[in-house]
């Protein structure tokens, strides 16, 4: 039964990372109506920041949350500098693609200046390995599989059970009406970016715990997250989460039966097929944020 365990574990693990990244993209899209192409950078910065704090002697249980918080702040700042001034432009989506891409390149190269190209690693959440059936897995990876639903669940509770979360959902649906009930739309935009960045940072800390970090470590996960939102639709938070796990399992199954060599090609074949049938994504509810 090694195959089943492999697939199950691999799917859950990859799905967790994809979900953490994709949900941030979707959150920003639904609230502000822009696509953040510097999202991967928060992942990288989160990992590096945590590494720096640990190197300075902070214990991981302090360093990790601090880094996540710092990235939330970064997200806010980025939003205020390269997104908010552009709101109201007719070609907002396009211009934000370019400003966030440029900001991403700026931060990436800045990180290269500060931390250098040498690979680094941060301590795992939990060290050690266990045997799971016939395969050996690290406790760190198991921790990721368990922490991810907790983080996403916390986000769900925040959005659905708090007044601030309610405000965030309201802004995503109707900006003018939100102003007319007295919501601080500017603050909510910053908040949505901040939460997205914090989740990406958490994913970065996860990734940095079992793989070597580099200033470009956020690029691939961002690309994957983009594919996840193509699959899952982007106008809801839950769609991308389902899609993330679906793709995680798809990859695990494909690579088990067809090998790593063919997995990307198969994934894209599935993607094209999905889009032919349901261009707005698999899990899109019957509404969408208006965009030409």
């Amino acid at each position: 039964m090694g195959g089943t365990a492999d697939i199950l574990f691999g799917g859950l693990f990859q799905g967790s990372l994809y979900a953490m990244m994709a949900v941030g993209l979707a959150l920003v899209w639904t609230t502000i109506g822009v696509f953040n192409f510097s999202h991967g950078v928060f992942m990288m910065l989160g990992a590096y920041f945590a590494w720096q704090l640990v190197t300075w002697g902070l214990p991981p249980f302090l360093a990790f949350p601090l880094s996540v918080l710092a990235m939330a702040g970064m997200g806010w700042v980025l939003q205020a500098s390269v997104v908010r001034p552009l709101i109201g432009r007719s070609n907002l989506v396009l211009v934000v693609v370019i400003t966030t891409l440029a900001a991403g390149s700026l931060i990436e190269n800045g990180a290269l200046e500060v931390w250098g190209p040498r690979s680094k690693q941060i301590p795992p959440l939990v060290s050690g390995n266990v045997m799971l059936g016939s395969i050996g897995v690290s406790l760190h990876q198991i921790a990721i599989i368990l922490v991810t639903p907790l983080a996403l669940g916390a986000l769900w509770l925040f959005l659905n059970r708090t007044r601030l979360g309610l405000a965030l959902r309201a802004v995503a649906q109707n900006e003018d009406a939100s102003r007319l009930v007295g919501l601080n739309v500017t603050m909510l935009y910053g908040l949505s970016f901040g939460i997205a960045a914090a989740l990406a940072a958490l994913a970065g800390i996860f990734l940095g715990g079992y793989r070597f970090m580099s200033p470009v470590m956020g690029v691939d996960p961002l690309l994957k997250a983009l594919i996840v939102v193509v699959f899952g639709g982007i106008s809801s938070i839950s769609g991308p989460i389902y899609a993330a796990y679906l793709i995680g399992f798809f990859e695990a199954i494909a690579s088990y039966y067809f090998g790593l060599y063919w997995t990307p090609a198969l994934l894209f074949a599935a993607l094209i097929l999905t889009l032919m049938v349901k261009p707005e994504g698999l899990f899109t509810p019957n509404r969408s944020r208006g965009l030409a």
């Binding site: 696509f35 693609v97 594919i227 193509v230 982007i234 894209f268 261009p279 965009l291």
Partner: peptide, 24 residues
Amino acid sequence: RLKGIYIILVTFGFAQLVMQVILS
């Protein structure tokens, strides 16, 4: 038949597909 952001996402996916095929 697509609009806006979905065009960005799909064409982006296409670029990745081409790259993956060349890599593989």
